[in-house]
Amino acid sequence: MANKNPNIEGILNHSKIKTEQSVQKVDETLKHMIKKQLNINFNSVAEQAKVSKGFLYKNHRLRSRIETLRKQQEGLLSVKQVKRNISDASKDVIIASLRKRLKGLEQENKELKEKIKVQFGKIYDEI
Rank of each mutant, 00 (worst) to 15 (best):
I95Y: 06
K100S: 02
K31P: 07
V23G: 01
R101C: 05
R84M: 06
V118F: 08
K80W: 04
F120T: 15
S87Y: 13
L38R: 06
T29K: 00
M1I: 11
L98I: 08
Q21S: 14
R101Q: 06
L56A: 02
L56M: 05
K122W: 08
G121L: 12
K58W: 00
H60Y: 13
I127G: 09
N13H: 11
E9S: 15
L98G: 05
S64Y: 12
V82E: 07
S22E: 13
L62C: 04
S64Q: 15
K71V: 06
G121W: 11
S52G: 12
N41Y: 03
N3M: 14
N85M: 09
K16W: 06
Q48T: 12
H32N: 15
D27V: 06
K50S: 08
V23S: 04
S97Y: 08
S15Q: 11
V23C: 07
A2N: 14
V93L: 08
Q37G: 02
I8T: 14
Q21N: 15
D125E: 10
T19Q: 10
D27P: 01
D27K: 04
Q72T: 02
Q24Y: 13
K113M: 08
Q24N: 11
Q21C: 12
L62F: 05
L62K: 04
Q24K: 14
S52A: 05
N109I: 07
E20G: 08
A46V: 00
N41M: 04
K115W: 03
L62T: 02
I40E: 00
K58R: 02
L38E: 11
E106Y: 07
I17V: 04
R99F: 13
V26N: 00
S90W: 10
M33K: 03
K36E: 13
L56Q: 01
G10V: 12
K80E: 06
K100L: 03
R99D: 14
I94W: 04
K16S: 03
Y57D: 01
K18Y: 09
L30N: 00
N59A: 03
E114P: 02
K110H: 15
N85W: 12
R99K: 15
K80L: 07
D27M: 08
R101I: 02
I86H: 04
V79A: 06
S87K: 10
L30S: 01
L105W: 07
E28H: 10
H14Y: 10
K83M: 05
E47D: 12
K16D: 03
I127V: 10
N43E: 03
K113W: 05
A89L: 13
R70A: 10
R101K: 07
K71H: 13
E74A: 08
N85V: 07
A2M: 11
K50C: 03
Y124P: 03
E9W: 12
I66A: 08
G10I: 14
V51R: 01
K31T: 13
K50P: 00
K80V: 04
